[in-house]
Nucleic acid binder design. Structure first.
Lengths: 159, 159
DNA sequence: GTATCCCTACTCGGATAATTCTTGTCCGAGTAGAGGAGG
DNA sequence: CCTCCTCTACTCGGACAAGAATTATCCGAGTAGGGATAC
C-alpha cells in the first residue's frame, strides 16, 4: 500500500505556487525543472488539482498554474484527496454475508465492527491532514529557501 | 490507494479463530467455506500472519491455524501491518534536493515539513487501530452470531 | 485384548500465470504575446 | 506615432505503451490420525 508519487510532487508544487508573486502563473516546465521531475507526467496530478478546484490553469505564453483560492483555505487533505481520490483505503466487501455462514441482509443493516473501526482510523488520519494548510507548509520552510524562491520568481518575471 | 483484500479477510478470520474452542485448529478450507472466499489465495495472507507471530500453523489431519497468543494482546494494527507491511504509505523522495533548485544535503538533515506531517497523520491512524484488540472485535459481533459460530465449531469437533 | 506398524488422506508452504493499476510518454487543440505592416 | 492583423511559439489536455504490484492458481513436502496386523 503506497501513495502515488504525485502526492509528494503536488504538495511541494502547491507550496511553491503559494510563494509566487500574486497573479503570476508557473508553467509545468518550470515546476519540473525546479524539482527535477519528469515533466510530461506532471500533467496528470496537476490536472487532478485543477479539476478539484485547487488550481487554475491558463494557456499560451506566460501561462501556467496558479492557486485558485487563498493559501490559508487550502488544506493538505484537499491536495492529497484530489490526487489520490476520496475513496477510503479500506472498503468493506461484506464477506460476512457470503459463504456457508452467510448472514441475512436484515442482520447486516448496521456496518460490521471491522468496517466501523477502519473508518474511524481513516477519519483520524483525515483530521490530522485537515489541520494543516498551505500557509503552514510555507512557514515551515527555512527563510533562506523562501528568499531564494522569491528571487527566482522575480528573475523569471523580468527575464 | 487501496488495501489488499487480505486485510479484510484476515480481520474477520482472526476474529473467528478467537471464537474457536481452546486448542482447536481451523483449516484454510473451513475458513474459505465460512466466508465464501477463494480458498487457495487465502494461503498468502495467512502465511503472513504466521510469520508475524500472530497465528500458529499445524499440518496433517485436524491441522490448521490457531491464535498464537491471547486475543486481548492482539491489536488490529498488528493484523493490518502483518498483511500490508509496516512501510508507511507516504515515503519522502527528497525531491527538494533535486532539480535546478536542489538544496544541499546539509540543509536537509531535518526531514521536510511535508514528510513530517504525513508521518504524523500516519501515526494518528496507527494509534487508532492499536487501541482495538481482537477481544473488542468479538464483543462487537451480535450474540446470536457468536452462538451459531460456537455451535458450528462444536459440530465440527464431534463430527 | 493390546501394542506396533504402515498407509491413507488431509494439511500448509512455495513457485507459477493472468489481471489491474501506477508510471512514463507522446502528440494535438487552443491561446496569449510579439512583430510587422498599414493608416 | 498609433492601431490592427498575422504569425509564431508556448501552454494545457487527452489518448497511448511499459512496468510493477496485486490477484488468482497449481502442485509438492510433511504430518497426524486411522486401520490392519502381529503378538
Amino acid at each position: 500500500m503506497r501513495f502515488s508519487q504525485g502526492v509528494e510532487w503536488m504538495l511541494h508544487s502547491v507550496a511553491l505556487l503559494a510563494q509566487a508573486p500574486a497573479g503570476m502563473a508557473v508553467s509545468r516546465r518550470v515546476l519540473a525543472e525546479h524539482y527535477g521531475l519528469p515533466e510530461p507526467y506532471l500533467a496528470k496530478p496537476l490536472k487532478a488539482l485543477v479539476r478539484a478546484g485547487i488550481l487554475t490553469a491558463s494557456s499560451g505564453p506566460s501561462g501556467g498554474f496558479r492557486l485558485a483560492g487563498r493559501p490559508e483555505d487550502i488544506t493538505v487533505l484537499d491536495i492529497v484527496e484530489a490526487v489520490e481520490g476520496t475513496s477510503p483505503p479500506f472498503i468493506c466487501q461484506e464477506i460476512r454475508q457470503q459463504g456457508t455462514a452467510g448472514l441475512s441482509p436484515a442482520v447486516c443493516q448496521k456496518p460490521c465492527a471491522v468496517a466501523t473501526m477502519m473508518d474511524h482510523a481513516h477519519q483520524a488520519w483525515r483530521a490530522s491532514l485537515r489541520g494543516i494548510t498551505v500557509v503552514d507548509l510555507v512557514k515551515s520552510t527555512p527563510k533562506a529557501i523562501r528568499d531564494r524562491n522569491r528571487a527566482d520568481f522575480a528573475a523569471r518575471l523580468s527575464g
